[in-house]
Write a protein that binds this DNA or RNA. Sequence first.
DNA 1: AATATATAAATGTATAGACAACTATACTAA
DNA 2: TTAGTATAGTTGTCTATACATTTATATATT
Lengths: 242, 242
Amino acid sequence: MINKNSPIPIYYQLEEEIRRMILEELAPGDILPSERDYSEKYDISRMTVRQAISNLVKEGLIYRQKGRGTFVADKKFEQDLSGLSSFSEDMINRGLTPSSKLLSFNETSGNALVASKLQMETTDKIYEIKRIRLANEEPVALETVYTPKALVGELNEQDIDISFYDYIEKKLNLTIDYGDQTIEASLANEDEIHYLNINENDPVLVMHRTSYLNDVKETPIEYVTSTYRSDKYKFKMQMKRD
Amino acid sequence: MINKNSPIPIYYQLEEEIRRMILEELAPGDILPSERDYSEKYDISRMTVRQAISNLVKEGLIYRQKGRGTFVADKKFEQDLSGLSSFSEDMINRGLTPSSKLLSFNETSGNALVASKLQMETTDKIYEIKRIRLANEEPVALETVYTPKALVGELNEQDIDISFYDYIEKKLNLTIDYGDQTIEASLANEDEIHYLNINENDPVLVMHRTSYLNDVKETPIEYVTSTYRSDKYKFKMQMKRD
DNA sequence: AATATATAAATGTATAGACAACTATACTAA
DNA sequence: TTAGTATAGTTGTCTATACATTTATATATT
């Protein structure tokens, strides 16, 4: 399972192996093999094992108890509540089935607000993708995503069919670091009334988000505007007190 | 600065020392002494220095760049955005002056929803405090706080004049751990129209929050319902991608 | 002037070992 | 039976060292 000649660090290979064990073989509360076990089994230093385990502890997947051992943590639903997630991930977390209906897919430029949010020039090419987002086939949100062509390259409608985050992370191999988000209340406009199938004077939740990559410059990768039906959607979050 | 004979781990002593340097001597973007510098200066192993630095990196206080060095991070305003904060703290963060107008202050019991949120019996005594919250003298939100008498004892109107969190943390010496929060959109009801000085059919943001103490049982300390004027208030948050 | 090349210095990864602190268990003595 | 004691096994802390990878800079080379 561990390849010492791989350019992939051993501690990272072990992380993946432990992650797999937790998923396939272990239940919350189960004890993991001890650090020395791993050290001997794969013939690697105990410090390297500790590096792998420390990373997983940091992620909250496992926890240590001095003198006893290392254990699988309970599933942390909170993490999903407070972390940045795409519409699809969000719906799946709520036990719903996400889907979407594409309204338009354009290559644009010239929108000053969007360009500034993405830290681009107004002449730069920017994709504009408008979609209805559905949960269990019912319309929940109207969403417009803006993303710089310079970062995502040639984009097809299929690429983002389910989850744009999936495309960014798995196809482009970019890492999203964090998002800045605002939430406000408003009354639905004509488009929203039409596409979300709601009535005049119905209140809606308007969310704006800019997401940033995990690079040195913290490059903006998307600017999203979403309008949620207030009868179908609440924002849920868990916040730590510091 | 480092005492090798102290029962306090060396890596922790070094953490404190670096923390102090950041506060007193360094500015965001400044480079820290290198790992070898610390290692030689205090005659400790570089791995121990790395342990201290890794902890501070995890906290977001500093960041590393391979081949360059370790640097002081920018002050994280995000923390304030994403962390649990009271109305007063929130307003101060936004550069506004918070105040409040007390509407009612009652000792109640019997509300099943509130009792369940606070994990109390319906017969238990619960304070109900209704206030208008203002920023720069303008009404921003209508807030109702529920808190168990068993936890906060005899409460006066003055005790919570400015910030209820202040009272909990400084007077009662309790530690708040986290809060579960939901945000939805709605139309203002009569009370809200009246107290917030808005019009019929104006949309509002409705926030519900349960906050929990940092004890083993995670005891609920407050259940809050707040209605925010949508023209005066947006929720802002920063979310990490994991 | 522009482009390679070498070098030093920084963080990143990894090893082998030592002792401390803590937990659980088995054993012994009162 | 109870309390103390030894012991084995665990994670926690720490050292000293080695080489890899990346960055910045100085120095040749073209």
